[in-house]
Design a protein around this nucleic acid. Structure first.
Lengths: 344, 344
DNA sequence: ATGAAAGCGCTAACAT
DNA sequence: ATGTTAGCGCTTTCAT
């Protein structure tokens, strides 16, 4: 039960621990015969070098932290998958933590991790952090020598690599798609108006209208609290009754599906009289009826990219302190909630 | 940038490192005045004891591993959330790994983790592992002194704590629910026939029929490969055309939703002429139209329970080697794909 | 009240 | 080819 150490092996063969260490690391200094017997023995006994001893010695753990606001979100799960894939390939393990959208937990977690537990961290800001604009904990961990890579919800002012999507362009494209398929009365439903990604999508929506020469109707901008997706339908029903709209762009799947249901209930035919596009990664889009056309976000690729950047930074010798911002483009995935767009 | 160590502090005050160590640990051996100044200094300089040094010394990391087949599955994400919550409360961190349903990756991962990286591990078996019945890697890690807690997909023969659901009873209840609301021609759609949880649900289905005095119709048992949920509708369409059924129990959400769509397309009214119940935790259930009645699995609670058991084992001094199996009961959550059940 | 020294498991520079 | 030693950062026993 007691784990086998290099010392035990040394005793067993009556040699010194450094001989064993070198033998196990296949050093040229050690004779072939002793190397062989020691390696064979170690293998048989299933010897594994102690992780903590190595980390202590090397001053690095080959562990990266990932800190996300919420694990029940398909987007973050996808990002995680991408990170895991790359980390695994490069021999890194992952400590994963949840901030629960809380600034305090985010800060505590970062604090807890910056004691040599991890070599670097990939994170997406908690909502509260972004809203309060409180970034000192990020600065602290960077000052502690722990590189950060941020994705999706990133803090502009923090000097670190950032992996984001083209939220603005995504929204522009969504508007244009709808417009080109004959929808001009386009509402914008946002559950993210307090976050930067939400604002960017909003601005993209405005830009899209402009490009398509559609006048802005203020009433078409609908902000809902994201708390309770169960309420989305109730919130939207009276609005849709009042408003004369023929399309919706939503910042997330749930509200898009709610919008679609309400529209159908009110007698619209989707996608002909009423089209819907949502920002999304999700499973919901593929299971709704009709299936949802989406501005799709490539979470896995974002995660993989984040991991690559972080690991590069960790393993690069030259201490070049440049930081990059990478944009992973969204795609419009046409499903059944919009009319097909033929390029003319 | 270079991290502050106990040695640095000792030098700064011209005292020995053991004095500093004791001072920081608030030892009675150290005078109040030196304790104060050392603690104050440490705090100001944001001193953090090195994690790896502590782990090496204590022979424990306060890290638990979690090894799940797939992160994009809402059930596993929920379990993770439960684990995270408890771990966090008790001061443990989590290293999370994905087996991707692969025996080899599962074994490799366990191997990689049993070098002192973690104190214990929570896992759900990869599909391949369960199918091939290849459990030596579990035995190895247990022999390495790393306790395992398994959940959901558990290996009977391995001596460890296990957290499972009452799949059998869940299926019985589902059948009875349908029967009592007037549905007797109940099909069973399984995407998990190769897994034990799938078999248990299957047996529960049979038992439910028996209890309700419904004769078994072999054709009503429909096994589909889970690979491609996109194909579910195509697979089910001809079957439903041929079969005379008025209800479906599905082992997962996706196939349930596919079944519902196909039924609706074929002119059935859900839930009146055709009811659907699915084993599920998911978001899909709450967003489909109509919303799906489910045998609901409480993943978060399973995760929390698993973490509690593991941490208990890790922190209990007495080496009692008993293992327990805990059943977290499912509930039927009535939504709109079944008729309401009034107890008579 | 403070310090010296050993040890956790390992590597590596420096003997021999 | 093999061994000795110091050191990674910390705790703890045993001096002083």
């Amino acid at each position: 039960m007691k784990k086998l150490t290099i010392k035990d092996i040394a005793n067993h063969f009556g040699v010194s621990i450094s001989t064993v260490s070198k033998a196990l690391n296949d050093s040229y200094e050690i004779s072939v015969s002793t190397k062989e017997k020691i390696q064979k023995f170690a293998k048989e006994k299933n010897y594994k070098p102690n992780f903590n001893a190595l980390s202590l010695k090397n001053r690095k753990t080959k562990i990266i932290g990932i800190l996300i606001p919420n694990m029940l979100n398909y987007f973050f799960a996808q990002v995680f998958k991408g990170v895991e894939k790359v980390a695994n390939e490069k021999g890194y393990k992952i400590i994963s933590c949840i901030s629960n959208e809380s600034l305090e937990k985010e800060a505590e977690t970062l604090e807890m991790l910056s004691n040599g537990s991890i070599d670097g961290v990939i994170l997406s800001m908690a909502e509260e952090t972004e809203v309060k604009n409180e970034y000192t904990h990020f600065k602290n961990t960077i000052n502690d020598g722990i590189p950060i890579v941020m994705f999706d919800r990133v803090a502009e002012s923090i000097p670190c690599d950032k992996i984001i999507t083209n939220d603005f362009d995504g929204a522009v494209n969504a508007v244009q798609h709808l417009s080109k398929t004959g929808h001009k009365k386009i509402a914008f439903i946002s559950t993210l108006s307090h976050l930067n990604v939400g604002r960017l999508r909003h601005q993209g929506y405005l830009k899209g209208l402009e490009k398509e020469n559609i006048a802005l109707n203020i009433d078409y901008i609908i902000n809902i609290k994201e708390d309770d997706y169960k309420e989305y339908e109730n919130v939207l029903t009276p609005i849709f009754e009042k408003l004369d709209i023929d399309a919706v762009i939503a910042t997330d799947e749930s509200s898009a599906i709610a919008a679609m249901k309400v529209a159908i209930r009110q007698g619209y035919k989707v996608p002909d009289d009423f089209s819907v596009i949502a920002f999304s990664n999700g499973i919901l889009a593929r299971h709704s009826s009709p299936k949802l056309t989406t501005v799709s976000q490539h979470g896995e690729q974002m995660g993989a990219t984040a991991a690559e950047f972080l690991i590069n930074k960790l393993e690069s010798t030259n201490a070049e302190e440049t930081t990059e911002t990478i944009v992973i483009k969204t795609d419009i995935v046409e499903r059944k909630s919009t009319k097909p767009l033929f390029l003319n």
